[in-house]
Every structure is written in structure tokens, then in C-alpha cells.
């Protein structure tokens, strides 16, 4: 091959490569790469609902009525370790160590096992599904049995779940479990059967100190938006970018 011919074929190659490259760049502009596949976007229409949840740690007294009401409302087996919502008692000792207790999810109440003189700070942290809008559990489901509703509630389709437990592992907040009676994944539905009829969730209904707040994040007048305005609210594990919609007031760094 003469030098001239090599020059021609090289030019041809560069032209082709440039066309393909520019095509790739332009198409990627139309559909930008997104690692989060099944996320539901917050509705732009302010009249549509976008459910969120607030927890005021300062108000929680650890009575565990929420965990009890949740089990009753949603027919969850009474034996321990299956909770849609539960309460944890955090005790930060003077030496800096942290003790976390949750006997039977708090349903039978709490006893402080650390002597008062050793306690630096102690408080209760209620936990439940954070209803993330970029949920790791929804991403992990191989069959599409768990999903985010258009109004921002993460739910399980129990007739379609195959019980593979991927979502139980994927949830960084430990909010899922396998229902021993049905052998499918189960979790907080934010009492969808109640909130869609205008009622509040069972846990919010029974909370005696109003430490739990359910609200529509799209409604500027909702109690949740008011709560978030008045307090410095944080979500659990923000570095995981799960899009959690469960906002805690007075959340200490020790809480995991």
C-alpha cells in the first residue's frame, strides 16, 4: 500500500469515527444516563399528593403504641421481629458508647437499663419505611412486585412477590421483612387503605404526643410542611441518596 492510499484510508477511518462519536454524544443528550431506573418523580402539579412523614424525636416518649397499633391495623404476626414500625431507645453514655435497645419493638414499653449517672443523653427514635423516591428496594426487585405509587408511597404487590428477599437486603433502613404467613416481602404501606380514604395512618392516630406527622409535601399548608419549616429536619443515611421522605427533628448523629 502506497503512502497516498494509507492517507486516504486513515482519513476515511477518522471521518467514520467522528460521525459515530458525535452520534453517540447527541443521542446521550436526549436520554441522559440514569442509574436509578424505577424512581417516581414528585408531581409538578401542586394539587397532586406527594406523601411524606415527619418524626419529632423530642416528643417521642417511647410508649410503643404506634408499633402496637401498626401490628393490629395491618394483621402482622404478633411474635417478635416482624415490624412495619418500631421504636428504638438510644442511650449515649458518658464514655461515648452508644446502647440501642428495642425489646419487642417497644410494644411492651421500655426500661432504661443504664444507671442514670452513666447517661449523657437518652432518647427514643421511632422507625418505619422512609418511603424513598429512589428506593433501593424497588431497584432490587427482580419481578416488579414492589413499586412506588404516583403519590410517593412504596408498596408491595403481595400476589406478585416471589419471596426472593432481595429487597429485604437492599433496604438500608431494615424496614422490610418476610411475612411468615404469606412468605412474601412485607413493609409499611403508610396505611394506604387509610390515607386514600382521608384518614391518617394508625401510628399517627394513636401517637399520644403527636410525635408522628403524616402529610402531603406538595401542599404548603399541610402539617408536615409546617413541621419541616419550624424544625431542623434531617433524613436517615442521607449519603446513600435514597430520596428518603421520612424527616426527623432532633436527629442525633449516633442514630443509624
Amino acid at each position: 500500500m502506497s503512502n497516498e492510499e494509507i492517507g486516504k484510508s486513515r482519513r476515511k477511518f477518522i471521518k467514520k469515527a467522528a460521525t459515530v462519536g458525535s452520534l453517540l454524544v447527541t443521542t446521550s443528550l436526549f436520554t441522559p444516563f440514569n442509574a436509578v431506573v424505577y424512581a417516581v418523580e414528585r408531581p409538578k402539579d401542586p394539587s397532586k399528593t406527594w406523601w411524606g412523614y415527619g418524626i419529632d424525636i423530642e416528643k417521642c416518649i417511647g410508649c410503643g403504641r404506634c408499633a402496637n397499633a401498626c401490628k393490629t391495623e395491618n394483621n402482622i404476626p404478633k411474635q417478635p421481629f416482624y415490624f412495619r414500625t418500631w421504636v428504638e431507645q438510644y442511650t449515649i453514655k458518658n464514655d461515648g458508647t452508644v446502647k440501642v435497645e428495642s425489646p419487642n419493638g417497644g410494644i411492651d414499653g421500655f426500661v432504661q437499663s443504664v444507671p442514670p449517672e452513666d447517661i449523657f443523653k437518652a432518647f427514643f427514635v421511632p422507625k418505619l419505611c422512609n418511603h424513598c423516591y429512589k428506593s433501593p428496594c424497588v431497584q432490587a426487585c427482580p419481578v416488579g412486585a414492589t413499586y412506588e405509587t404516583p403519590d410517593g408511597v412504596v408498596m408491595v404487590d403481595e400476589t406478585y412477590c416471589i419471596g426472593c428477599r432481595y429487597c429485604v437486603q437492599a433496604c438500608p433502613y431494615g424496614c422490610r421483612y418476610i411475612n411468615p404467613a404469606k412468605n412474601v416481602a412485607d413493609k409499611c404501606t403508610l396505611c394506604y387503605h387509610r390515607i386514600s380514604k382521608g384518614k391518617t395512618t394508625a401510628c399517627v392516630e394513636v401517637c399520644p404526643t403527636h410525635a408522628r406527622i403524616l402529610g402531603n409535601l406538595n401542599d404548603p399548608k399541610s402539617p408536615l410542611v409546617k413541621f419541616m419549616k419550624e424544625h431542623t429536619c434531617l433524613v436517615l443515611k442521607p449519603h446513600l441518596n435514597t430520596g428518603s421522605k421520612c424527616f426527623y427533628n432532633a436527629l442525633s448523629g449516633e442514630v443509624r
Partner: peptide, 12 residues
């Protein structure tokens, strides 16, 4: 979306 839409009504 990638789920059974009727499931929402069933949960309600």
C-alpha cells in the same frame, strides 16, 4: 411503571 397497577387499588 414496572408493576401491576391494579395492586394499588387492592391495597386501598
Amino acid at each position: 411503571g414496572h408493576y401491576r397497577f391494579n395492586s394499588i387499588a387492592e391495597n386501598k
